[in-house]
Write a protein that binds this DNA or RNA. Structure first.
Lengths: 155, 155
DNA sequence: AAGTTCTTGACACATTGTGGCAAATTAGGG
DNA sequence: CCCTAATTTGCCACAATGTGTCAAGAACTT
């Protein structure tokens, strides 16, 4: 099972194209065929789903209840800002202009592997988010995740 | 059950490659296939997980809920500093540049066996950490950790 | 002491990221 | 319709980085 990880900063040309990190590309399942869906994410970043993963998202959304307010809102605001993108022959993706402005991306963008999907951040926004994270938080997170993780059968 | 121990200082070439200590290599489980994950650790060192160990971490992470703020932040700040590495034919690992700068590694690096995983330190930082540890505190910590758990076969 | 295994330096080659430029496509206005 | 402008897509080339291989010397075993 693949899982995106790592962080890569790349520049974006004046046409909105960014080269997709090579290490991430190697994880792509052939069934995705270099096709993705970009969507507005939380905290001002973008989410990039490989096509096969996106199918799961769609399915989850289709089960959202249309007759509750939150179900409708979730569905509407997710799908309306979703667009197909794909890698070109030089392994770049062209991010739609709307999304670039939404994410406040200027000349650089940061890819962050999030397991099943990828986040794309403007470096400035990311830094802001980092600064708001208190310094001990990382340590806490660490203990939480690794503390349980490394001893195989402790929970 | 294997368990990494010991300490080894090796030099690192200008492209960031270090030869992996032979004694540790002999402990690797075949299922890991000479593959690891490096991740930023605490106190400015790096952690190196054999692939099979890392799987436990991934599983813990996959249970973090992407749609809660804290779940997302935990996952992000974990995965973004993690990268796959593997041994080459000369049994070296190439440490990504980001990680080298994070750990302030220059021309030498120290491997420390930590049971299920391995720590990688810049010699200078390690010395600093050692110097900051006063001997009494060490004794205290030792008693605390060892005293409680396993009296049975300590001498 | 001889042979094996490790470590590391040096070199060559492949891949990646990026900027610039050309071709192709689309859209709009007269 | 045609010409032009604007946008999109593709191509090439350079620089930088990453990866693979070989081989000498150190360290360790027997």
């Amino acid at each position: 099972m693949y899982s995106f990880k790592g962080q890569y900063e790349h520049s974006i040309d004046e046409k909105g194209r960014i080269s997709f990190p090579a290490k991430m590309r190697k994880l792509l399942s052939p069934s995705a065929q270099d096709r993705f869906v970009v969507v507005r994410g939380l905290e001002g970043c973008l989410y990039l789903y490989p096509e096969n993963e996106w199918n799961n998202v769609e399915q989850a959304l289709s089960q959202a209840n249309n007759f509750t307010r939150s179900g409708r809102i979730a569905k509407r605001n997710f799908l309306r800002y979703a667009e197909d993108v794909s890698l070109d022959k030089q392994n770049r993706i062209a991010i739609p202009t709307d999304h670039i402005t939404f994410a406040a991306i200027d000349s650089k963008a940061v890819f962050i592997g999030m397991g099943q999907y990828i986040e794309i951040w403007s470096p400035e926004k990311l830094k802001e988010a980092d600064d708001n994270l208190d310094p001990d938080a990382f340590e806490e997170i660490f203990e939480q995740v690794m503390g349980g993780g490394s001893q195989t059968d402790v929970d």
